[in-house]
Amino acid sequence: MTSLIGWRDQCFQILFVVAAAPLLAGWLQTVRALLQNRRSAGILQPYRDLFRLFHKETLIPEQSSWLFQFSPYVMFGAKIMAVAIVPIIANGLPLASAADVIALVGLLAVARIFQVLAAMDTGTAFGSYGAHREMLISALAEPALLAALFTASLLARSTSLVQIVHLSQIQLFSIHPSMVFAAIAFGFVLLVENARIPVDNPATHLELTMIHEAMVLEYSGRHLALLEWAAQLKLFLYMTIGFALFLPWGIAAKPSLTSLVIAAGLVLVKLFFAVVVLALIETLLAKKRLFRVPEFAITGFLFGVIGLLSHFMLGS
């Protein structure tokens, strides 16, 4: 019976996140528009975009292979699997034991490598330079992410996200200096991996500075819709991983429907504020020169490493 309830929570979490991800993107666009003194297209615009894209005809480049058509599904599927693993609104879900933080990072790498390969599959200049930029930056961001996650794992004496969230709900990790570093490193990685402003401009139309957009340039129709949705899911996922590590309050531990709903509401509240912070960052900072981006990622790695070091040096 408990396992059935667990699966119900699991499905609830997946559906909730998949449905709410475009909302997050819409809210982000709205806040950015407000901050930049523009009129926003409304918080529901991403839904309309997805709807429109799904109904459009889908073109594929003449010379592309099955990888190109398969990748959007892999990327979306991998994100769903990741959503199933991370404690977003409930802790200790049935699928959570399938993967710990290391496997979670591996899962995100699966999605990324498929995207990069699909970009190279088009055989265009933009596809391949988007690919090598993405690989380079993620080669520097992935260690930073893992270093941040290791710091939390060392405190919790476990790499399982369930255990980390469980312990940090009791012990308030965030006061610990090593977690401060880890949080900074995680913030860097969030900006890098989600193609946010100091690293990449999600709304750019200037080919030479694109990273993420260059890779999806040849996609259209339902493939593009899946990719856009997957990117929104990724942002949602990173923010909620951040919550799980640094602000774990409110994630439901007991399996009851009311607690789930409350937890879902709390996640939305946290996201509300996180998005405002993100929009502020994106408004206040300028996009970095491409060659400064690796420096940005390396700085994130550095913070992760200092977090690991200070865990030992300042005692736990």
């Binding site: 892999v74 599927g77 769903i80 199933a84 699928l95 034991s97 710990d100 899962l107 399982s160």
Partner: peptide
């Protein structure tokens, strides 16, 4: 509690979600 990794479930989960999508 310390760490677990179930590659079979993992593979099944990804394959299933890709198939469903």
């Amino acid at each position: 509690q310390r760490a677990s990794y179930l590659p079979g479930v993992f593979l099944l989960g990804i394959a299933l979600s890709i198939a469903v999508v």
